[in-house]
Simulated scan of single mutants.
Amino acid sequence: MTRRTEQHPDPTDSRIGAPIFSTWRVGTPERQRLAAEAIGRTWERRPWPTSDLLGYHVYAGQDGSTLMHYSQWSSPQAFEAFVKVHRQERVDEIDTAVPGIERVGLRRYRRYRSRERAAGETRVPGHVVTVRIDFEAGGEGRREEWADLVLKAVEDDPEGHAGLLSAHFHLSADGGHVLNYAEWESSEAYDRALAAPSTDAWERVRTYPGVAGFTGSRYTHVLGLLPG
């Protein structure tokens, strides 16, 4: 059985051995809505494929043209088994409902560190931001240190990040980049943080050696699926 949830995922769940993020380009806000509805129908019509899939969440990009997918797997092998047996029939049904979806990337990660929600925090994330940080070739070992610097900068600037509910740093399996999945109270809170005066700690983050570039994207959580 597959059931829906409005709750956001918990990236710190110790059972997650293979977090996977992917992106679909669908073109318009209306097609975002139709594709998310098709995903929900397709999954709800079928039994949950395996207990090794802990959760599957879909987000609408505020660019009006993309969907981000975040699935939480117990292991890479469990995901590969799903692809072999269950994935294609779901893809075919969704593509029949919403033709022309462009699947532009699927990336595998391991979570490195998180700034978890504070104890007793009751605010619901109204805004999800992902930032991909690419590193120059040979920079695999620098990714952890860079993430550490970011977390230290956030800790040293609690007022400027009052709207940040959590931040989760994932290292790509190919060694090339870091993905920060962050939950914010609202888009306004995120904009205020971006507009805040820079500090020495943030300058060290921005000028860290080996960083090749940053790519940020904004999302709204539109679909959560869990085993029933």
Rank of each mutant, 00 (worst) to 15 (best):
D95H: 12
E140T: 12
T96S: 08
E116G: 14
A18T: 06
W48D: 00
R4L: 11
A38M: 08
H170P: 04
L171K: 08
S75C: 09
P76A: 09
E203T: 15
R192G: 00
V26A: 01
G141V: 11
E93R: 00
W24T: 06
V178P: 13
E102V: 07
T28H: 14
A195I: 01
L171D: 10
D191V: 12
P47M: 09
G175P: 04
G138P: 07
I101Y: 05
E185R: 05
R113C: 07
A196S: 15
H161G: 01
Y181A: 05
R115G: 14
V104I: 15
T207Q: 10
G139W: 04
I20W: 03
V91A: 13
H57W: 12
V222Y: 04
G163V: 03
R117T: 14
V104C: 14
V104H: 12
P125Q: 03
A201Q: 13
S65R: 11
D134F: 11
G139S: 06
H170C: 08
S166D: 00
H127T: 02
S71P: 05
R123I: 12
I16V: 13
E116R: 15
A36W: 11
E80Y: 03
A162R: 07
S198N: 01
D157T: 12
A118Y: 03
S74R: 15
A36C: 15
F214Q: 06
A182V: 10
M68K: 05
L225N: 06
Q77I: 10
E159Y: 02
Y181L: 02
P11Q: 05
G27Q: 09
T96I: 05
A119N: 10
G126F: 00
D157C: 09
G160C: 04
E80D: 07
T96Q: 11
H127Y: 14
E89I: 05
E145H: 15
P19A: 00
V129N: 09
R108M: 03
G224S: 14
T215F: 04
R41S: 11
R87L: 15
